[in-house]
């Protein structure tokens, strides 16, 4: 019985390893963290970056004009929240425009872009999917808590854009591949 349980763990670990295609460290510090969708998930990514000892500043509403602001990598905490957008006094369209301009300017400046989605299945839906579809294809690397990819949206977007995607089983596990992306 113990061997069987051990085998389950081995299988699960193997499955996790298969879903992970983490690239070698490619991003430079410091990072600038922003939200795309104004969900509270940016708070979790902030903690993950701090734990991973990645120097960063966070500004959920940073605009293209403020880039690079000393940063060399742009981290996008992706996930839509109508409550968050309302509190920030910004419409969905305006948020998409801000994100597009931000990404364009980051590219012009040669910054690396990492998209991270930690909200899981609960942070999916029409609103979030608009932001996910915008950010994942234009990123250099994407990380997702895997239950958000039950329908394969992240896998499809990453595969079409030919970028590495790492799927983790829980929020706490997202810190390792995130920190490992930084030189």
């Amino acid at each position: 019985m113990r061997r069987a349980i051990l085998s389950v763990f081995v299988l699960l670990a193997a499955a996790a390893a298969l879903s992970a295609q983490a690239p070698a460290a490619f991003a430079e510090k410091p990072a600038l963290l922003t939200s795309v969708g104004q969900s509270a998930d940016i708070e979790m990514v902030k903690v993950l970056l701090s734990r991973g000892k990645v120097d960063h500043t966070a500004d959920p509403l940073v605009t293209a004009a403020k880039l690079p602001g000393g940063a060399k990598t742009l981290v996008l905490a992706v996930g839509g929240s109508s409550k968050g957008l309302g509190a920030a006094g910004i419409s969905t369209e305006a948020e998409i425009d801000r994100a597009k301009a931000l990404i364009k300017r980051a590219r012009e400046l040669g910054m690396k872009i990492i998209a991270i989605h930690v909200g899981g299945e609960a942070r999916r839906g029409t609103l979030s999917d608009a932001f996910i579809s915008l950010c994942v294809p234009v990123s250099d690397y994407a990380i997702v808590v895997e239950d958000a990819d039950k329908d394969g949206l992240f896998t499809k977007l990453a595969s079409q854009a030919k970028i590495p995607l790492v799927k983790v089983d829980k929020i706490t596990a997202a810190g390792v591949p995130l920190a490992a992306a930084f030189k």
Binding site: M44, V47, K83, G119, A122, I171
Partner: peptide, 15 residues
């Protein structure tokens, strides 16, 4: 599920 999502949403306040 409900409590997990509330803690996530309120993490800024909690921290």
């Amino acid at each position: 599920v409900n409590l997990a999502s509330i803690i996530q949403s309120e993490l800024g306040k909690i921290n």
